[in-house]
Simulated assay, not measured.
Amino acid sequence: MPIRTDINDRIGEVILDHPPVNALDSTLWNALPGIIAEIGSREDVRCVLIRAEGRGFCGGVDIKEMQAHPERIVALNRGNYLTFKAVRDCPVPVVVAAHGFVIGGGIGICGAADTVIASDDCYFSLPEIDRGAMGGASHLSRMLPLHTVRAAFFTGGRITAQDAWRLGGVEKLVPRDQLHAEARAFAAVIASKSRTALVLAKQALNGLEPRDVDHGYRFEQGFTLEMYMHADSQASRDAFVHDNKTAQF
């Protein structure tokens, strides 16, 4: 299954397992919000852990789908928006265990979460400017300083997990082979608390944020749609698919 769940010791895991790079198509992005909402609403769950199998955490959207079916952009945008909103609105805290690469939509998941634990081989990237798209800065701005986000956005470059940790966007940096265990240990501390206290704390912390990240992302999506309607956008996707047949990152 591309997305599966597991519940154990009051921790609900949502696991991405969609080879080769956990790049999700519009159908999967639209399925993910319901999965997150359902597991987070269970009374026997006090912390949600989102992690992935394979080479990296998330390769973002399926560029090949968008290249072949640009008319699906609205469905894709909706799935992205609802996924990130489901993470942020999840009744209990959400921890992300990120490894390998966190690209595009993967940034949205991490940026909407409450805490990110990353492996030391991980990097974060918003390559949208080279893919004929926009989006992601609203959520990355919850993790990292403004100018770091802008530099990454304009260049399509990478931010290493080490730099993200140094700048405060990653709570803990661990060896790759210890990521799952370390993330579960961190989640277990949260899961040992009162569910009622966690739910109220999550609501309070969300309400204290200086800006509405969901509104910010919706604003970005307007420019994403505008970009998708431009000839340069289709040309960028065509070039990406042609030059990256095996979707190497």
Rank of each mutant, 00 (worst) to 15 (best):
D44Y: 10
P19E: 14
D214A: 08
N244K: 02
H99G: 07
D238Q: 15
V14A: 14
L167N: 13
E53H: 14
C90D: 04
L24D: 01
G106H: 10
H147P: 04
G59L: 12
A239E: 04
D238P: 14
L167V: 10
H69E: 15
R150I: 03
I3Y: 11
R176V: 03
T148K: 00
F101E: 02
V241S: 07
I117A: 02
T148N: 04
I35G: 15
L32T: 04
G136D: 02
A52I: 11
A86F: 00
A161S: 11
S141G: 09
Y123D: 02
E182Q: 05
L146Q: 11
P70Q: 01
G59E: 09
G222Y: 02
Y217A: 06
G12N: 10
G156H: 15
A187C: 07
I159M: 02
V116R: 11
L126E: 15
M143N: 04
I159N: 00
C122Q: 08
V116Q: 13
A188E: 00
G105Q: 05
A75H: 03
T148E: 07
K193S: 15
F57I: 10
M1N: 14
P175R: 09
D25W: 01
G105R: 10
F57C: 15
R237I: 00
G222T: 04
E128L: 13
D6Q: 14
L140N: 00
K245S: 09
E43D: 06
C122Y: 13
E43I: 03
T115W: 11
D120M: 09
A197K: 13
R142T: 11
R150C: 00
T246I: 02
I109G: 02
M229S: 03
R176H: 02
H147M: 01
A183R: 14
N22L: 11
S194F: 02
A231E: 06
G56W: 10
D177T: 13
R218K: 14
E171Q: 04
G156F: 15
D163H: 13
C90H: 01
H147G: 08
V241I: 11
H99L: 08
R78K: 15
A204W: 07
Y123V: 08
C122V: 14
V149E: 12
T246K: 12
R166W: 06
E43Y: 08
V94R: 07
A187T: 07
I129T: 09
E53V: 13
D232E: 15
R46P: 09
G156E: 12
